[in-house]
Design a protein around this nucleic acid. Structure first.
Length: 158
DNA sequence: GCCAACGTTGGC
DNA sequence: GCCAACGTTGGC
C-alpha cells in the first residue's frame, strides 16, 4: 500500500462534494502537470491511502482521508471541448492526461494546517514542505500516520 | 489580490 | 538545446 497527498481547492471540489457523490466516490480529474500525471498513471494503486489537502484555503491544510478505488485511466475531460479541463493536445488514441477514482474515508477531527506541518520536525521532508507546487505527491507511511496522529486519532489502521 | 517560484512554450 | 517570455500555482 502506498500513501499520497492530493491537493484540491475547496471552492472547486471539497470533502463535502465527495461525500455527496454516489458511493462517496469520485473521479479525480483535471490534473495537468506531467509529474503528477506520471504518479496517477503509473504509481497510484487501488487501496492506496490519500490525504485530501485544501490549497488556497484559510488555512490551507489536510482535511481528510480517501482511498483509491480505481487506478489510472485516461482523463476523458481532456477530450471534452465544453470542459474547463479540455486539452486539444490529448488524443483518445494516446491520452496525455490520466485520473484515478477516490472514495471518502473520513474527515479529520480537526484540520492539520500547513503551518503545523511545517513546524513538525518529523514532517520536514514532506514534498509539501519542499515543493509546494506538486498537486499529486507521495507521502511516507510515517508521515501519513503522523498527520493522522496530530489530528487526534487514538488508533491507526494503517 | 499580490507575487515568488515553478512549469511550459517556442524562437533561434 | 538554450533561454526569454509567458502562464499557473498557491501561500500569504
Amino acid at each position: 500500500m502506498n500513501f499520497w497527498l492530493f491537493k484540491t481547492e475547496p471552492d472547486v471540489f471539497s470533502i463535502e462534494d465527495l461525500l455527496a457523490c454516489t458511493q462517496k466516490t469520485s473521479s479525480w480529474e483535471g490534473v495537468r502537470n506531467y509529474q503528477a500525471r506520471n504518479y496517477l498513471r503509473d504509481s497510484v494503486r487501488i487501496k492506496d491511502r490519500v490525504l485530501m489537502y485544501y490549497s488556497r484555503n484559510e488555512p490551507s491544510g489536510v482535511i481528510g482521508e480517501m482511498e483509491v478505488v480505481r487506478s489510472g485511466y485516461p482523463d476523458h475531460f481532456a477530450f471534452d471541448e465544453s470542459s474547463e479541463y479540455f486539452d486539444p493536445k490529448s488524443k483518445k488514441e494516446s491520452p496525455t492526461w490520466y485520473m484515478v477514482d477516490v472514495k471518502y474515508l473520513k474527515t479529520l477531527d480537526r484540520m492539520i494546517s500547513l503551518k503545523e506541518i511545517k513546524s513538525n520536525p518529523k514532517l520536514k521532508e514532506m514534498v509539501l514542505v519542499k515543493n509546494s507546487r506538486l498537486s499529486i505527491q507521495p507521502v511516507t507511511r510515517e508521515e501519513y500516520k503522523e498527520i493522522i496522529r496530530m489530528a487526534g486519532a487514538k488508533t491507526l489502521d494503517v
